[in-house]
Design a protein around this nucleic acid. Sequence first.
DNA 1: GCCTCCATGTAATCCGTTACATGATTAA
DNA 2: TTAATCATGTAACGGATTACATGGAGGC
Lengths: 178, 178
Amino acid sequence: MAQKNRLKYVLLGLLKTKKQTGYDLAKSFDSDIGEFWNANHSQIYPLLKRMEEDKLIGHEDVTVGQKLQKKQYFITNKGQKIFYAWLKSPSDLDNTHDEFILKLFFIDDAQSPLLKPMIITQQKYHEEKLQQLNTQFKQKFSTQKKIDQNFGHSLVLRHAIDREQGYSNWLTEMLKLI
Amino acid sequence: MAQKNRLKYVLLGLLKTKKQTGYDLAKSFDSDIGEFWNANHSQIYPLLKRMEEDKLIGHEDVTVGQKLQKKQYFITNKGQKIFYAWLKSPSDLDNTHDEFILKLFFIDDAQSPLLKPMIITQQKYHEEKLQQLNTQFKQKFSTQKKIDQNFGHSLVLRHAIDREQGYSNWLTEMLKLI
DNA sequence: GCCTCCATGTAATCCGTTACATGATTAA
DNA sequence: TTAATCATGTAACGGATTACATGGAGGC
């Protein structure tokens, strides 16, 4: 055994809402869920095949135009079951792999000339991100109804915004310290 | 090519301070740096060997007791060079893999009975973590001198505390919402 | 006709985890 | 003497990234 294969549950979660092709699923990671999870099509297609062998999902072939065959995947009862079992199971937390933090750890000297430029670069990045997330929230959750119907998604996006804000504040504090 | 191999830089960073065995390096991840990076000895030993082939590090054999041979690794000039080059290079940020957040994303309904127990479990975890980090900070950085001599480390630990505090606050807010 | 996007796959490679395996030293 | 810790390795496997590869649909 090795690793977790949480991607399996992500795909089941996405298929829970509507049937989709592998291509559609892959696209979800470019927007939406991409904020906190990622996967490429080269990982998704083989996994879908294995999941179908395990009867967690099924597919129907759909013909588009003259020749193009696409596979509409859907979740099975068994798939639903293991998805909800996962939801209820305890969550373990990977440690974050933030390269900036890692570098910072190795700067022993408060007077190091490396510090300031590092912080400023990072700050720029996180401020852009923050703006982008705020825009996203306004677009996706413009009404209370939209929030109520995608409650978890809204909470998660709110969390991402909080996190970025916290990160920004911390960087600002650091600049004052040096 | 695949992936980043940042572990290489972590090991160089640790060896920059003092020469150490693979065993010592592996132990660093249990305390100290373990807060935001991890590695097992089974990954470390082969990597050290490769790094030595690349002349980033060297080692001297030390005999302990009658028979035990251990390898004291040290960083070379070349190793120092590529370490500082890495420090100065732009940092890219992996997206966090937080399983709780992932699950939350899939809870569409604000009235779902799953929500409350999930949040409470998570809250317990993060509050423990917060306490633990606070204790750690007090132990490691009891004087200003200690902070000044391990400035980056203190900033990073401060950040971890902020992050946990933010997470806790967010969870508390969520409980009010449901 | 051409470019963009849709759509599906495989191969190579590396990273990271778990498990297997062995033996020495040291302190209770 | 025995248990915990020090010390070093390999093997198997699964996850994730990058690159290679192919072809159809639809709009301009």
